[in-house]
């Protein structure tokens, strides 16, 4: 994975590019080759996060009496991805066969969350290399079980302070996310962070007056959903952003590299740019991940958008 502009955007050093001929008419138009050093080292999650996953996910699945042989929680492994968790797109609030909604979420975390965590942790490591955001607000769209929160703490340190807005239509996902966050706090990770869980952007409970805090929006694997209305999503996101304030907003997009699941990306990209965001990275890349069977390369699609703090208050029509 290459995330060339990310940290530079964050540091506000866009001028860096001008000396390398990468800025044309004050707009970054081509960043693909800005940094050529592909990440070769496998992504390593911090020990507290490995412990958390072991205690709350892998051992719970492994120690469950229903997990025998090729079966996990009583379901054949081959059926889990397609049928039980639907590659992350299932309706997790519905039971499936003998599995409860909580079982389905646990299986999602068991089979899919680790890779998503590794991707986001690596992206945040690049984004914040050499700097540290000051008490940002993390808005995680389709958050799953606290994946973006765990990833950012993995990259920035377990004591980093942020507000986490986790949006997921699945109540079971949000519930398990809070369970992981509470368990992380017991491991002294993110003990002071405030979490706001919501089924939708429009219903996010945010009682602070608008401010100037940096906002990091995570859009990870959300577009795998074929029913997603991207324009409506961004309109709702803008509604929330205006409630949060006028600070800088960075949007990190990650998804599978498969073509079919990125069909909504052009609309997403155009709508964000029309809302004043600038595109700083748009590419497909690799990260190295480590498994018991050895290291392997994982390919993903990623993009990074950034909008500077708002200098004009947009008034609606009277």
């Amino acid at each position: 994975m290459r995330c060339p502009a990310a940290q530079l955007v964050y540091l506000g050093v866009v001028e860096w590019f001008t000396g390398r001929g990468l800025v044309v008419d004050q707009k970054v138009v081509f960043l693909k080759n800005a940094i050529t050093d592909e990440v070769k080292m496998p992504v390593t999650l911090p020990q507290w996060l490995q412990d958390l996953r072991r205690d709350e996910i892998t051992e719970r699945v492994g120690n469950d009496p229903r997990s025998v042989g090729r079966k996990v929680l009583g379901v054949d492994k081959d059926a889990v991805m397609d049928e039980v968790i639907g590659w992350g797109q299932a309706d997790f609030d519905e039971p499936w066969g003998t599995l409860s909604s909580d079982d389905r979420v646990l299986l999602y975390a068991y089979f899919l969350q680790l890779r998503h965590l590794e991707e986001l942790a690596e992206a945040f490591r690049m984004l914040f290399a050499g700097t540290h955001p000051n008490d940002p607000i993390i808005v995680d769209l389709g958050c799953g079980p606290f994946t973006g929160g765990l990833a950012i703490a993995s990259a920035l340190g377990a004591d980093t302070r942020f507000d986490y807005v986790g949006v997921d239509r699945s109540c079971a996902m949000r519930r398990f996310g809070e369970q992981l966050a509470s368990a992380a706090a017991r491991l002294d990770a993110m003990p002071h962070n405030v979490r706001h869980w919501s089924p939708s952007l429009a219903s996010v409970s945010w009682n602070e007056a608008p401010g100037w805090r940096d906002v990091i929006v995570i859009v990870s694997y959300l577009f795998a959903s074929p029913t997603l209305d991207v324009a409506a999503l961004i309109a709702e996101l803008e509604g929330l952003l205006s409630r949060l304030g006028g600070g800088r907003v960075t949007v990190l997009y990650t998804n599978s590299a498969r073509q079919g699941v990125n069909l909504s990306f052009p609309v997403f990209c155009d709508t964000l740019q029309n809302a004043g965001f600038q595109l700083y990275a748009d590419d497909t890349g690799n990260i190295e991940i480590k498994r018991r069977t050895g290291a392997r390369t994982h390919r993903l699609r990623y993009a990074l958008f950034h909008r500077d703090r708002q200098s004009i208050l947009r008034l609606g029509a009277q």
Binding site: W212, G246, R309, Q310, S311, I312, L313, R314, L315, G316, A317, Q318
Partner: peptide, 17 residues
Amino acid sequence: LEQIKQATGLDDPAMLS
């Protein structure tokens, strides 16, 4: 602010932060 803008024809306001 909308009433001020409408009555005066001023642009959207710049924000001091």
